[in-house]
Amino acid sequence: MNPEPFHNLDRIIHEKGRMTIMSLLAASQELSFTEIRDTLGMTDGNLSVHIRTLQEAGYVGVTKTFRNRKPLTTCSLTRQGRKAFETYINLLGEIVKQSRAT
């Protein structure tokens, strides 16, 4: 089996917590921090660390606004993040194809 696709997997995305965040954001235009937290059953601290990692990599954009005088943090995938996730999914597809062939 060719190990190249395994090595090319994006290490930032290839982590359970961050992959679920990316998957969730990839399937919707934008989501609030609380929506992500409740859907994934993560703690505030855990989620904010993952979001910060993804934000530093340029994969997730965070917008802070106010709704009904309450702060609202919304997250969305950036163009770069969407592209990186697409590449990641394609690599997983390649790995699956390879394992079928062997």
Partner: peptide, 11 residues
């Protein structure tokens, strides 16, 4: 993977 791709395309 196909489900993820479809959801990504739709969104």
């Amino acid at each position: 993977l196909q489900v993820i791709r479809t959801l990504m395309e739709r969104s």
